[in-house]
Computed example of a mutant assay.
Amino acid sequence: MAISDLQLPEGVQTHQLADSSVLASTLANDVAQRLRSAIEHKGHACVVLSGGRSPVPFLEQLAQQPLDWSKVTVSLADERWVPVEHEDSNAGLLARHLLQGAAAQATFFGLYQPAADLERAAQLTDAALAELPPIDVLVLGMGDDGHTASLFPGSPHLSEGLDPHSPRRCLPMLAPSVPHQRLSMTRALLASAAFTALSVQGPGKLAALRAALATDAQRMPIHAFLHDPLDIYWCP
């Protein structure tokens, strides 16, 4: 089965790459090209990225792209509610694998906020995100359960997180099977991106995409994004 075998909605473009290395380099090149275009047209660019282990090769490739990083704001689609020093912090991941060398000149806009509880942290992050520049490029991932960012099936705030008209930019989210509480950008904010890429690898993720197309966003939240303009980058 190939990505081209899926019956995808109009507006969804697919890129089938040979392997994970080619996917990382192709996506990094395409993202950098769009950031350069944004800088050329308006003097600044904003990219929102996803954490986890899978994006590491892409992040390292992106860091090597010729780009005026001093004119780029980098943020995250979601974050575990842990300080940046914690080994599971997505901000820490970006610090290690992207914001090095020339890319260290970028402005980083983190989601983590110290607070008495997760709800208060999400409120602080929500207010802070009012200052985030318009998103030029968004790079999403997807779990086998169909979650994207930290919009998890079964999370108490999922309906609000998926509401395209929600006034919230950030919500507290819970991942059912992992220990850390999460902060996630809402679909309302994520869908404002000028260009959205979804990076997925392997037959398992392809099967998850097929399942997501056949169900609804409550069961597999990525379903909501498959009906927006989207470029899917996939390799076997």
Rank of each mutant, 00 (worst) to 15 (best):
L206H: 11
Q33F: 12
S75R: 06
L230V: 10
L226S: 02
C46Q: 05
P176N: 00
V178H: 12
A149H: 10
Q201R: 15
S25N: 10
H157Y: 12
F108K: 08
S89Y: 09
T186G: 01
S75I: 03
M173E: 14
D144F: 01
A63C: 12
T73M: 00
T14N: 09
L99P: 04
P114H: 01
A188N: 02
A77M: 14
S159W: 07
R168L: 11
V47A: 02
A188K: 02
F109D: 09
P179R: 00
D78L: 09
S159K: 15
A212W: 06
L171A: 05
E119D: 08
G204F: 05
I222L: 15
G110I: 03
G161L: 05
S75K: 05
H165I: 00
H227G: 08
F108D: 05
S20P: 12
A32T: 04
H157W: 13
S177W: 07
A104L: 03
V31R: 14
V74S: 05
K42D: 01
E10G: 12
L183C: 08
P229V: 07
T215R: 15
E119Q: 15
L98W: 00
L162S: 05
T26H: 07
T196F: 11
Q33D: 14
S4G: 08
R219C: 05
A188Y: 02
L226I: 02
V74F: 07
A130G: 07
T196L: 07
G101T: 02
P221S: 03
H180P: 12
L49A: 13
D163W: 01
L111Y: 03
T107N: 12
P114V: 00
A194Q: 15
D5R: 09
C170V: 15
C46Y: 03
R120A: 11
Q61N: 15
E160F: 05
Q64R: 14
G51N: 03
D117M: 10
A194P: 15
S150D: 04
S54F: 03
R210L: 04
E131D: 14
A28H: 05
R210H: 13
D78I: 06
L198A: 11
P55C: 00
S37H: 15
L27Q: 12
Q13M: 10
A214G: 04
H97A: 00
S89K: 09
L17T: 12
L230I: 11
A121T: 01
A45V: 05
G154P: 02
P66M: 06
P114C: 04
T125H: 02
S4L: 07
D145V: 06
V139G: 14
D88L: 04
S177Y: 08
G51L: 03
D163L: 00
S199C: 11
